[in-house]
Each structure stands twice: as structure tokens, then as C-alpha cells.
Simulated scan of single mutants.
Amino acid sequence: MTIDIDPTTAAARPDTAAAAASPPVIAVRGAEKRFASGTQALAPVTLDIRAGEFVSLIGPSGCGKTTLLKLMAKLTEPTGGSLRWWGGPFDQVGKPDRRLAFVFQEPTLMPWARVAANVRLPLDFAGTDRRQAERRVAEALAQVELTAAARQYPRQLSGGMRMRVSIARALVTEPDLLLMDEPFGALDEFTRNRLDEDLARLSWQQRLTTVFVTHSLYEAVFLSSRVVVLAARPGRVHATFDVPEPYPRTEAFRTSDRFALMCRDLSLLLTDASVASRA
């Protein structure tokens, strides 16, 4: 089920037309997940994530959003079906133009290390040349507007700033695919809206393919080129919802009639998904 809302004036995210003819960045084919307890978290899910898309996963509690995201990151294995990354197995991830980064719900920063050292951590693990690493850290901090905080410690930062550090740590690896597990859920609405605007801009500028888990339908509409609505017990794709709005997105979109209409329609789909979850 797909809802399209007046695409006549919509601008595509970068390279989405060309991406339609190439293998998906992630191809999920009948992937399911059953835990050792016997609980089936995901029924067979088939889903394509195309280059340049910003896809949000949304649905009622227990619908398997985080489980599906972890399958995409290969942080857990499916108990059925398969996944492909850029048309091949996961062992090619990390090669040029095929880099993946994951942002967790919590910033998980090292409290004893300064901001710059926290951001540099994945480059240290990779053995990146120190001069190159420092350049990339400076670029990543500039992208999230934290250059002035480079020598501060996490305890000196607000919750929103700590999350920016976590995002910078993902960006420093120069990813092509960014997976984010509800990173702004614990923040106040003002900070969350600001970070949503920054993320939409960064994803668009960096030509990232992004998969984003959220419980907020407003956040999903604001950020996404496509929203995947999941139903629960077991988790499964209930509907997809296209958001054909130009990027970058600003407060003007959030306060527009178009935004209100899309939020209303997505809310109806979420209601349907909740009913399906109880059936």
C-alpha cells in the first residue's frame, strides 16, 4: 500500500533516478527473526533501500523496527530469508562507496575522552594516519556545528550536543549508508526539531542513504523521502508512504499545510497498523 501526495513539485534526493536502475543499497528478501525464547520478532520482510533515499521505519511498540535495523547492520542474523548489500554479501561493506555507520539510541561516548577523541575513535580502530584522522574529525565536527566543543568532555555538553558528537563519530568514517536507531527520542521537542533539520540537511548534502527508526510520525514525515509502516505480532511491513517534498527541509515545511496533510494521512496508516497488530 503506497500513498503518493502530489509529486508534481517534489525534488528528488540526489541520484535517486539513477539509483532506480542499480542494485538496492540493501535488499531484504523474506528476512525473519525468531528469538531463542520462541518469540517471532519479524515475519518475512521484503524491502529495498535505494541509493539516496531517506527511509524511516515507524510502527507500534513491538513491531520489530530496531530488529530490522540491526539485521541491516548485521548486528544480528536472520533466522530465515536473506539480505544483500549493494547487490552482494556483507563482506564487501567497508570498501570504497560501500561504507556503513550506525548511530544508537544513546550517544555512548567515552566520558574520560574529549569530544575530538570520541569522534576519532573509529579512525583509531582502523589505523588511519593521524594527520588524515585529525582533518576528518575537524570536518565531521564542522558538519554538526561543534567545532568549538572539540576539547570539551561529554559531561560539559547538553544532551543534544552529545548526540551531535555521536553523529559526528558516524560521519567521520565517510559513510554511504547511515543507520540510526531513534537517536533523538530522549530529547526535548525544540532540540529534536533542530537536530531533525540538521540531519535532513546533512543527509542531503552528503548524498547519504539513510534508514531511521522513530516513534514520531511528525519526525518521519519531516525527514523522509519514504516511510515504512510496520505492524506487530509479528513485525511486518504494513504500508509504505512517500513524502515527495524537496530537500533541504526547513521550518517552513514543518508549518505548512502540506506537512499537516501528510501527518494526517500517515496517522491513519499507523492506526490501521495498530489495529492489524491486535488482530
Rank of each mutant, 00 (worst) to 15 (best):
E197S: 14
D198G: 12
D198R: 13
D198P: 12
L199M: 14
L199D: 03
A200I: 10
A200D: 14
A200V: 13
A200E: 14
R201D: 08
R201L: 13
R201P: 04
R201E: 08
L202Y: 02
L202D: 03
S203Q: 11
W204D: 14
W204Y: 15
Q205V: 06
Q206R: 15
Q206C: 12
R207K: 12
L208Y: 00
L208C: 00
L208R: 01
L208Q: 00
T209H: 00
T209C: 00
T210H: 00
V211A: 01
V211P: 00
F212S: 04
V213L: 08
V213G: 07
V213N: 07
V213K: 07
V213C: 07
H215M: 11
S216R: 05
S216A: 11
S216T: 06
L217R: 14
L217P: 15
L217E: 09
L217F: 09
Y218P: 12
E219A: 04
A220R: 01
V221I: 09
V221L: 04
V221D: 02
V221C: 03
L223H: 00
L223S: 02
L223F: 03
L223I: 03
L223E: 01
L223M: 03
S224W: 00
S224K: 01
S225F: 03
R226I: 00
V227P: 05
V228R: 01
V229G: 05
V229M: 04
L230K: 07
L230R: 07
A231W: 11
A232I: 08
A232E: 12
R233P: 10
P234E: 11
G235K: 11
G235T: 09
G235A: 11
V237C: 07
H238Y: 12
H238C: 10
A239S: 15
A239W: 01
A239H: 04
A239R: 05
T240P: 03
F241M: 02
D242P: 01
V243E: 02
E245A: 15
Y247I: 02
Y247H: 12
P248C: 07
P248L: 07
R249I: 05
R249S: 07
R249T: 06
T250E: 07
E251L: 11
F253T: 06
F253Q: 05
F253L: 15
R254S: 08
R254A: 13
R254Y: 05
R254P: 07
R254L: 05
R254F: 04
T255G: 13
T255S: 14
S256H: 03
S256P: 04
S256D: 04
D257C: 09
R258M: 07
